[in-house]
Simulated assay, not measured.
Amino acid sequence: MSKSIEVNDLNVYYGDFLAVEGVNMRIEPRTVTAFIGPSGCGKSTFLRTLNRMHEVIPGARVAGEVLLDGDDLYGPGVDPVAVRRQVGMVFQRPNPFPTMSIKENVLAGVRLNNKRISKSDASDLVESSLRGANLWNEVKDRLDKPGGGLSGGQQQRLCIARAIAVSPQVLLMDEPCSALDPISTYAIEELIGELKSEYTIVIVTHNMQQASRVSERTAFFNIDGPGTPGRLIEFNDTGALFTTPTVQATEDYVSGRFG
């Protein structure tokens, strides 16, 4: 299921403002890649270009290529909705639909894509998705209860179950643990380690310890100052980037001198 992502000379704009400049990167399938860097350096903006969520903002656009196993996600005639089925997104704050049941939350993406699904297939999909998100045993006896009644960590895993129910090849996670307590954070990190056997995962995090725990490769983004575009400064194996960075700005950031 999982696919590679190749980014070539990508510039990201909000209207005339160049927000992220000249990104080149290859992300291998069945790996976890972490994006780190100070606030405002374009990490989340760049992440959203990988499933065309960026362009839901009026005036937002990109120039360059984002290739999913060689297919340009921004090519002529490519349906952004189809892209988002292949490249799922989990957001910073858990966002289950509060009035929907746990079961209906899992099925929401499938229903949104107008997929016809039998009652038995729906039940199987709910169970397999919740098992995939390590949530089944905690909620199997209350599938008809509102998703908003779960704890924060459970809600985030419910959102992950909803994302994987539509069978994506890539999972993007934008600071998925920033609103969670340490125990829930540990559960999400454990889950990421399990999911990478099936999915290509890209995670934005402000927690450098988290990046070192969960990812094989890490990308450091930075900005020269207010009003200047974010840039990819260094992209390397996580161990190497944290212990022997090749760029001084990377060393300054990971050692805590700024950010």
Rank of each mutant, 00 (worst) to 15 (best):
D174S: 01
L10G: 02
L171D: 01
M25Q: 09
A133H: 11
L47F: 02
G193N: 15
A249R: 15
N51H: 12
P168N: 09
S212I: 06
I27W: 13
L47P: 02
L107A: 07
P98E: 08
K103A: 15
V66I: 11
Y74K: 02
M208W: 02
R61F: 02
L232Y: 02
G225R: 07
V62P: 04
E198R: 09
G22S: 14
R85I: 03
M1G: 14
Y253H: 03
N236M: 12
G259F: 14
T205A: 10
P245T: 05
R231N: 06
A219D: 03
P29T: 04
G152W: 08
N95I: 00
T205I: 10
L191E: 03
S120H: 05
P76S: 13
I160G: 11
L18I: 08
V139C: 08
E234D: 03
R111D: 14
A179I: 08
V247T: 08
Q210M: 11
I233M: 14
G77C: 01
S178Y: 08
V139Q: 02
K119E: 15
D72V: 00
R26T: 15
N137W: 09
I164W: 04
G22P: 00
A19Q: 12
N113H: 15
A133F: 11
A122E: 15
G239C: 10
R162P: 03
T243W: 02
E190A: 14
S118D: 11
G37I: 14
F46C: 09
M1L: 12
S44I: 05
N95E: 02
A179W: 05
F97H: 05
V204K: 02
A211I: 11
S2P: 12
P229S: 09
C41Q: 07
D141S: 13
M53P: 04
L10R: 01
R162T: 06
S151M: 12
F235Y: 15
G256M: 08
E216K: 10
P245N: 04
G148P: 07
A163S: 13
R142N: 12
T218N: 12
R213W: 06
S128M: 10
I188Y: 04
L50Y: 11
T243V: 05
I223Q: 15
G40Q: 09
